[in-house]
């Protein structure tokens, strides 16, 4: 029953956001600030995630295919496609659920329990337009950009690991990666990251916006936001794979 009520509250919050979508002047300043916080400030962690995911995948794939049955370029093919179709978006999404999701829910939760959201409403602001809309919009626009960075860095990480470990030269890695590169896989990855951006920022905004009960309440909201974001990233990943692949 509580889950149904929560879903109803979430849907209502999103509807309110959608209705006030056109009030650009209200959230313009916050939108640009969120582009920086969600996008620009996440680049270091996304580069790190991409590079190490690609590097580890290369070493493990080479280890598992350590036989003369396959050409060595197959490592580049597997790593490239796995990164582009799945890992850049999903691992990037899970990392961002922690970084971006936790920040959003803590920020809004603190504003709620310290009556800052009430203060906004009491002045005549639509607090959903002011606080939720820019965060969700920045998420859906910036996550695809972060996905492209993660995917690029993943392939580069795999290439470097293969070269440094002496598994396969960079040229052969790239030959393998190129031979199974399909632009529609990138589109699929972008669609996924767009959905993850919405899922993470909207759930975190919802949990923070309705937080209650002081510091403990904000802590609970943040934990729930992070856990639910991760769960829904995985569920939507499965749903998109079933629908689009």
């Amino acid at each position: 029953m509580d889950a149904v009520k929560q879903f109803g509250q979430y849907a209502l919050l999103m509807y309110q956001g959608l209705r006030s979508f056109t009030e650009f002047s209200t959230y313009r300043k916050n939108l640009f600030s969120e582009f920086v916080k969600i996008g620009y400030e996440s680049i270091p962690i996304i580069i790190l995630t991409g590079v190490f995911t690609g590097a580890v995948l290369t070493l493990q794939t080479a280890y598992q295919l350590d036989t003369d049955l396959y050409p060595v370029t197959i490592v580049g093919s597997i790593v490239g496609q796995s990164i582009i179709i799945e890992l850049a978006a999903v691992i990037g999404g899970l990392v961002l659920a922690g970084k971006v999701g936790a920040r959003i829910s803590t920020e809004l939760g603190t504003m709620r329990v310290s009556e800052q959201i009430d203060a906004l409403e009491s002045m005549g602001f639509n607090s959903v337009t002011f606080l939720v809309v820019p965060r969700v919009l920045a998420g859906v626009f910036m996550f695809p950009v972060l996905y492209i960075i993660a995917a690029t860095m993943g392939v580069i990480g795999g290439l470097i690991a293969g070269q440094l470990d002496g598994i396969l030269p960079a040229a052969e890695f790239m030959q393998g990666a190129r031979s199974f590169f399909y632009p529609e896989d990138v589109v699929f990855g972008i669609v996924k990251s767009f959905v993850f951006g919405f899922v993470i920022t909207s759930i975190s905004s919802f949990k923070g916006y309705y937080a209650f009960g002081g510091a403990e309440g904000v802590g609970n909201a943040t934990t729930q936001a992070t856990v639910l974001s991760c769960i829904y990233v995985l569920l939507s990943d499965f749903a998109l794979a079933a629908l689009l692949l």
């Binding site: 409403e121 009491s122 002045m123 005549g124």
Partner: peptide, 15 residues
């Protein structure tokens, strides 16, 4: 609401 001003208990200043 623009006809009202509220002083909240803790000030509710935007930090």
């Amino acid at each position: 609401r623009q006809n009202f001003g509220i002083l909240f208990q803790g000030g509710a200043l935007f930090d």
